[in-house]
Design a binder for these strands. Structure first.
Length: 598
RNA sequence: GCUUUCAUAGCUCAGUAGGUAGAGCAUUUGCAUGGUAAGCAAAAGGUCACCAGUUCGAUUCUGGUUGAAAGCCCCA
């Protein structure tokens, strides 16, 4: 059955499928929400209410409610939908529009932002009129089933300088089955949330008296990070990287040289008081200037370049208090951070090699499909935030774009997301709730070599400025761990699992044998635990499953006598039967090898 | 930093309309148990996040601090 929608000029279109224009119905749902709020609360001012991925929201001023009130508003929305109000579109000239919206200060501001000659469109449903470009459903019944999720604050026009409004989030679907499925999906996402699951699996914890944004990796979490770190450092060495270990802090002089003092001071932990102390220090928020000093410690010939420095680098950033979240937004984190000092003619090849390394890590972690690419450019109007050299920005961005295009990378462009010294390729990951974070970044830097007076001697004996590529290969270990927890719902692939094999002796008589098998697996490099409790086997298996251990080894009298082990795999709950301990080691080794295949 | 909500045992939560608190799971002990998804019993465990105020008395009311959740603004 066709559903009708109406645009701002009053044209009516018939569509077959609700889902083809789902954003239209959700946008209309936002209007229904505003209408419901207006009916229930006097003196509320409306701001804007668009459809967004997965739903819609509407912003209000002068509305003080809590989550408990949402049910009441939802009921009013259902009533409006049931009333099946007809939606009418009309257009007014600017002055008339202002007259109509005289009691809606936010709408008036929006009118002010529009050009003088523009005509302004309105949509009306019953007693409610909203200024809006549409289109909308022709009748409120077409909105379908609605659900409100939360009430939060949001700045007017997205600027912290403006007033904070009250935002209500919700969603709409054609049928209640689809709506129920979405609610279930959201509940399921909660179960994978690294901030919950990571604590349950004893990967990390936080402590009030230690502070916000300072998670503690517990033995299991630390083991996963250690596995990752060894893997990254070994692979980088194979690819010609040179390891550095540089200080976690420096005098302010260093950051003044690099420009971080001017551009990033707010984000740094500063030790000492500029007014009082002769010398003040700051914990490092990036490794760049430290590794540059390693380069500068001696003269370099053009023949030596490129230099590829990497460091498993602990960084400190003084994030504002409302930002901290689990392992994804913290004040201290460890980044696989590297800087390549290259000649201009090497930029392209080195940039591509960095991407190749990143792709390899993505593959081994199984995160390839989770990522999207963002080409982050500067904002020429924001000279506060960026080094103000328009020609250099244009040239560097052009070069980066051509490299990205030449390897056929699928990316989106974003203005105003660059580093202060150059454009970035950001590799973005999404958490279980759809929120995006930068996981890995590669940056082309035209500025810092000059600021820090870095040079090499070219074939003519002249001093020349190198180009610098800033790069991470796996991102911050904390944030990557969070991605992995959510991707695998805690059931890590064998090579990453903090406990790879759990040995379950059936009775005390097999404990010595269990220790023997454990020793064999440990010597082969595997992470093993023996369950020495006196519980029944079924109970032990249940525990191992809750811990999401990849392999369980059951040892009973029969196994001991035959000198074999009975193996169960976590995945698909497969029973692999009896095998010798050596065969088990061989099986595990080949599986790890397969998982890390180039 | 801002808006809203919140903080009771290791975890999940109940409770006290102001008189210092309870359950399930986990832990410990005893008993039971050689074989595939939670055996039975007992014990232990809490300055009810912290600091003030009101009160004869505060875990409960008020204010502040710290920490947590969702979102905004920022950001790897």
């Amino acid at each position: 059955m066709a559903i009708k929608i109406i645009d701002k000029n009053g044209n009516i279109e018939e569509i077959d499928q609700y889902n083809d224009k789902i954003e239209v119905f959700r946008h209309t749902a936002a209007h229904v929400l505003a209408q419901a709020v207006k009916r229930l609360y006097k003196d509320v001012k409306i701001a804007i209410g668009p459809s967004i991925e997965g739903g819609f929201y509407y912003d209000f001023d002068n509305l003080e409610i809590t989550n408990e009130d949402l049910e009441k508003i939802e009921d009013e929305m259902k009533k409006i939908i049931k009333e099946n109000l007809k939606i009418e579109a009309f257009i007014l000239p600017r002055e008339k529009a202002k007259e109509l919206m005289k009691d809606e200060p936010y709408k008036l501001q929006l009118i002010e932002d529009l050009s003088e000659e523009s005509e302004i469109s309105f949509f009306k449903q019953g007693d409610y009129v909203d200024m809006c470009v549409g289109p909308h459903a022709l009748y409120t019944k077409a909105v379908g089933k609605v659900k409100l999720f939360s009430v939060t604050g949001a700045y007017w026009k997205g600027s912290e300088k403006n007033k904070m409004l009250t935002r209500i989030y919700g969603t709409a679907y054609k049928t209640s089955e689809e709506l129920e499925a979405e609610i279930l999906r959201r509940e399921d996402a909660k179960k994978r949330d690294h901030n919950k699951l990571g604590r349950e699996l004893e990967l990390f914890t936080t402590v009030d008296v230690i502070g916000q944004g300072l998670p503690l990796l517990m033995p299991k979490g630390a083991t996963v990070v250690q596995t990752l770190q060894r893997f990254v450092e070994d692979e980088e060495r194979r690819r010609g990287y040179l390891l550095t270990k540089t200080p976690f802090m420096a005098k302010s002089d260093l950051y003044k040289l690099s420009g971080h003092w001017d551009h990033y001071k707010e984000g740094m932990f500063i030790l000492g008081d500029e007014e009082v102390d002769k010398e003040i220090f700051a914990l490092r928020p990036m490794t760049c200037p430290f590794q540059f000093m390693v380069y500068k410690a001696k003269m370099h010939s053009y023949r030596e370049l490129p230099f590829r420095y990497n460091e498993t680098s602990t960084l400190f950033r003084n994030e504002s208090s409302g930002e901290m979240h689990g392992l994804t937004r913290v004040r201290q984190f460890t980044l696989s951070e590297g800087h390549l000092v290259v000649r201009a003619d090497q930029v392209e090849a080195e940039f591509k090699a960095v991407l190749d390394l990143i792709k390899y890590f993505e593959k081994c972690l199984g995160l390839g499909n989770e990522f999207t690419y963002r080409f982050s450019k500067w904002d020429p109007n924001n000279t506060e935030k960026y080094i103000n050299k328009p020609e250099a920005w244009e040239a560097t961005q052009k070069q980066m774009k051509s490299i990205l295009d030449s390897i056929g990378l699928d990316y989106v462009e974003a203005d105003g997301e660059a580093a202060f010294y150059g454009p970035k390729l950001d590799i973005q990951g999404k958490n279980v709730y759809g929120k995006e974070d930068t996981i890995i970044t590669v940056q082309l830097d035209f500025a810092l070599a000059e600021r820090l007076d870095m040079t090499y001697i070219d074939a003519n004996g002249e001093k020349v400025r190198p180009v610098i590529i800033h790069r991470s290969s796996i991102g911050s270990y904390e944030r990557t761990l969070a991605m992995l927890i959510e991707k695998y719902a805690g059931a890590f692939p064998l090579w990453l699992a903090p406990v790879q094999v759990k040995i379950l002796p059936i009775a005390d008589a097999q404990i010595d044998y269990a220790k023997e098998v454990e020793q064999k697996l440990i010597m082969a490099g595997f992470k093993v635990e023996v369950d020495t409790s006196v519980e029944k086997l079924g109970y032990k298996i249940r525990q191992a499953q809750l811990e999401k251990v990849p392999y369980m080894v059951v040892l009973g009298q029969k196994d001991l006598e035959a000198n074999v082990v009975s193996v169960r795999a976590r995945d698909e709950g497969k029973d692999l039967g009896q095998m010798s301990a050596d065969a088990l080691v061989a099986m595990l080794e080949s599986q790890v090898k397969e998982q890390l295949k180039k």
